[in-house]
Nucleic acid binder design. Structure first.
Lengths: 146, 146
DNA sequence: CTTCATGCAAAACATTTGCAAAAAG
DNA sequence: CTTTTTGCAAATGTTTTGCATGAAG
């Protein structure tokens, strides 16, 4: 069960982003904060345990509305599935090719270096939004089985 | 129709990678060389115009076998679809969020810089295979319609 | 020959849609 | 009240599967 003070906090966040604070949106955002990075299905599992009447279609709607206002960020995957990131600031990720899980990898030095590298570069015919750096590999835990 | 000398060349490549040189594999690799980056469906469209009996299931099988031996690389997308890259050397990409198209972006200076940055870094609990840098944005052509 | 690859059709997934009913502000 | 949002159930699009047939080495 979601703590009352957390519900209140999430309501404020939703309102600040110009979204109506529906129970569905509250539990979805709550789930994303617990999960960090998650597929639609993972969100559905977690969020529907808080609000049993929640449907997948609504999860997709809600996630999309969050991405539109910039509350969540969509992530790339090699899994043919949609993944969301609760953190929208610019940061790197460790991406496990086996489990398709993400882990934040904060490396301000690297970020600064890359940012400087592109500071005065213009890319012809391309409007650059952000630079996405993924450290692709396998997390050791998932290495047990070959 | 595929040129005979190209067929011969592709057969050699397949054999070198330890794969039987079937007509299906030849046309799929031919298509990938023309397309550079492509979804399974794009490959199917292009390749089946060379070999009409080709089926989608075979395209998936063939692409998978190519990835396994390292002849192609799977790419991440935010499209919930599988994309392949004919170039397996380490390079950056421009990724258009609207059209979900990739463009190689060769920047040796950047690559070297990033490589040096990670040279002596160990990431606890993670076996790093490669660093994937995507310049995410919109290609100007696709900006016409808002 | 023997093993591996292909074609087929069905199944499995993930995501989207259209619309009526419900709820937020 | 008015405008969104939700739930439902069906549709869509992509990828996978199992298995009999065919082809490569």
């Amino acid at each position: 069960m979601i703590d009352n003070s957390i519900t209140t906090e999430i309501k404020k966040i939703l309102t600040r982003y110009g979204l109506k604070a529906t129970p569905q949106r509250i539990v979805v955002y709550f789930a994303m904060r617990e999960l960090g990075h998650a597929s639609a299905d993972m969100v559905y599992q977690r969020a529907s345990s808080e609000l049993a009447t929640l449907t997948v279609a609504t999860v997709y709607n809600v996630l999309e509305s969050f991405v539109e206002v910039g509350l969540l960020q969509r992530r790339m995957s090699s899994n043919n599935k949609m993944y969301m990131d609760v953190n929208t600031y610019n940061h790197c990720h460790l991406y496990c090719e086996e489990t398709h899980t993400y882990k934040d990898y904060d490396d301000p030095e690297l970020m600064l270096m890359i940012h400087n590298h592109f500071r005065n570069k213009k890319i012809r015919g391309f409007d650059l939004y952000r630079i996405d750096v993924q450290l692709v590999g396998r997390s050791s835990q998932s290495n047990r089985s070959k």
